[in-house]
Design a protein around this nucleic acid. Structure first.
Length: 262
DNA sequence: AGTACCACCTGACGGC
DNA sequence: TGCCGTCAGGTGGTAC
């Protein structure tokens, strides 16, 4: 689930529920998501407040009142859950902030594929991980440059976080479907018109995803992501049916009729 | 540089 | 009901 639109929704959720509240206690579960000692998390959070958030691709950073940042990555199954004292805590909580006013914020992650850390500087983390620009923080010219001198297929390229940060399997399929590009289209075969259309589609789809992604039912008509199964009717209503394809070891879905090979 | 494949974890789902 | 194989939207390493 957690790709750029989902992480942006988490960011807004954290902003709305957990900023400027004093952290009385931090419960840290020892697990592989931790990139630092549990005591480091506790020491940097207890008695402090979260004061703001930043997102880059699928990474979320929450500013701590001591000048450091809490880094959160959600892997495949991570999310945030705010709740009050009397509510039951969700399962698989890896980090829980207990605020002095009785509210809690939990980082929940079932499959433990994410990461939690306390860092000095988000920008340094982005550099260290070699992340490309955020998919919503570049203009057409910069987007065009991403493809220059590059070989390979468009789907794995868009999903490559070193090239462009934020797109995962599901939203990449969605963007390619709506831009009518076959997932295996070779980068050098993209026309300038294709690149322009891809850029505009990516921005629109990601924005719509952020506004409605929490509830796919609310997405505008014609979205592929609500029909990710072999043989489903093409959401665009072209009369074709959705097919499954494996690209770079990842299962992808597309409509061969709307997205012909070039 | 690009791609395929495995691994890391846990849970859901379908077949028997 | 239960066991087993398969698959899942992320990343990271290895080998070709």
């Amino acid at each position: 689930m957690p790709e750029l639109p989902d992480v942006e929704v988490f960011k807004r959720y954290l902003d709305a529920t957990s900023l400027h509240r004093e952290i009385a206690h931090a419960m840290v579960r020892q697990s592989r998501v931790l990139r630092c000692a549990p005591s480091t998390l506790r020491r940097n959070l207890e008695g402090e407040r979260l004061t703001g958030t930043r997102r880059h691709g699928k990474h979320l950073f929450a500013a701590i009142s001591n000048g450091r940042w809490l880094e959160l990555h959600f892997g495949m199954t991570g999310h945030l859950k705010a709740f009050q004292k009397q509510e039951r805590e969700p399962a698989h909580v890896q980090l829980r902030l207990d605020f002095t006013d009785g509210w809690h914020l939990a980082y929940v992650n079932t499959r433990l594929l994410g990461r939690l850390d306390v860092v000095h500087d988000p920008q340094a983390v982005i550099l260290e991980l070699g992340l490309g620009p955020d998919a919503l923080d570049l203009d057409l010219g910069e987007f065009r440059e991403l493809f220059e001198g590059r070989r390979g297929m468009v789907k794995p390229t868009l999903m490559n976080q070193d090239v462009l940060a934020g797109l995962g399997n599901v939203w990449t399929d969605e963007i390619l479907f709506q831009a009518r590009l076959h997932p295996e289209t070779e980068i050098p075969d993209l026309s300038d018109d294709d690149v322009k259309r891809l850029f505009a589609t990516m921005r629109r789809v990601l924005r719509e995803g952020m506004e409605h992604g929490v509830d796919p039912e609310e997405l505008p008509d014609g979205y592929l992501l609500v029909r990710r199964e072999e043989g489903a009717d093409c959401p665009r209503g072209c009369g074709g049916s959705v097919e499954r394809i494996t690209v770079s070891g990842r299962a992808g879905y597309y409509c061969p009729r709307c997205q012909p090979r070039s």
